[in-house]
Nucleic acid binder design. Structure first.
Lengths: 177, 177
DNA sequence: TAACCCATGTAACCTGTTACATGATTAA
DNA sequence: TTAATCATGTAACAGGTTACATGGGTTA
């Protein structure tokens, strides 16, 4: 039930529509969880059936009506229970590492080219996270009680991207030498 | 088709049985991909049907017979094609980051306790990878052409675990202050 | 004698992906 | 006028999880 928890967490942070959720899962929240709009709509229907969330229809001019979802107290309780249940470290699933594990069956240039492409992607993500960080958390010593939590997740975004970048560089060097 | 590629990559490294694969996906190869034995057996059946792998029945004394799977040339070709097709960075999916994102609805001690547990898990993984590294790659300057690839993936295992550890420490400090 | 390891499998279910579908509004 | 954005959905399929099942061998 992990997608449902991620949706509850996102709606707890800020009530929104399925469409908005899909965008958020493609941006900031998407750093640690992702889902397509189809998954999201299916899950929202289920969560509403189980009274974990409430929908409020918002009529709009010049664009389609939308349903804004909010956590019910039952939904918040579910989220709290899940957070309080200890979990093990989430497993990694990474295509690039699988490719490199079998990298000897292609040319070294193929792997180096792929590493260079990934390097660019990580650099872009890093810039995004750093921009968010300096915009929302310009002063680390002034964090609010609530802000601390988002700051911690953002920090790991920055840390991991920095880490992947350094590893790309190190690996490119090793394969080019 | 990502599980099938991970299986082809593992069998390319070393032919083995479904049971062995399950253990490997729970150990070294499991650092970058994981799968249950049920998934693996299902996928092996499919891969054999599509002539990507060959099975050789090995009779054993005092224990059940086993089927050792090896890549066919078609399977190697599939693996090579997949590696040569550029891919985007694999998305992260992490329960702990979702929990912390909504961390303000539980007590700070709950989150700190969870971080401390995860810290222990990352430390254990780090020790495992470092032991593998000093056993198989004691001298970085003496890497073989083939060894380089496994070394690169192992390096990222060590790097990422070190990173998660540092983040756990930083986050615990921030929440306890 | 109980629990665990070796080795393989079936069945049911849940989660995730891809393609298709609608229809108005807005920006290039 | 073409493409993109807003907003929601169905259908089919692939991938992943959990429970159940078998049966001999080994270790505590």
């Amino acid at each position: 039930m992990a997608l449902s928890h991620a949706i509850l967490a996102a709606l707890n942070d800020c009530p929104c529509s399925g469409y908005d959720l899909a965008k958020r899962f493609d941006g900031s929240v998407g750093f640690f969880w992702n889902a397509t709009h189809q998954q999201i709509y299916r899950e929202l229907t289920k969560l509403e059936e189980h009274s974990q969330i409430d929908a409020r229809l918002v009529e709009q001019e010049h664009r389609p009506d939308k349903k804004i979802y909010t956590l019910t107290s039952k939904g918040e309780e579910t989220l709290r229970n899940w957070i309080e249940t200890p979990s093990t470290v989430s497993p990694l699933k990474d295509d690039l590492l699988v490719k490199i594990f079998a990298g000897m069956i292609v040319s070294p240039q193929t792997i180096v080219a792929e590493l260079k492409q990934h390097r660019i992607q990580h650099l872009e993500s890093l810039h995004t996270y750093e921009a968010i960080s300096s915009h929302y958390f310009p002063d680390r010593s002034q964090l609010t009680d609530i802000g601390r939590y988002q700051y911690i997740t953002l920090r790991q975004g920055i840390r991991l991207e920095t880490e992947w970048l350094a590893w790309c560089d190190e690996s490119i060097d090793l394969l080019e030498s």
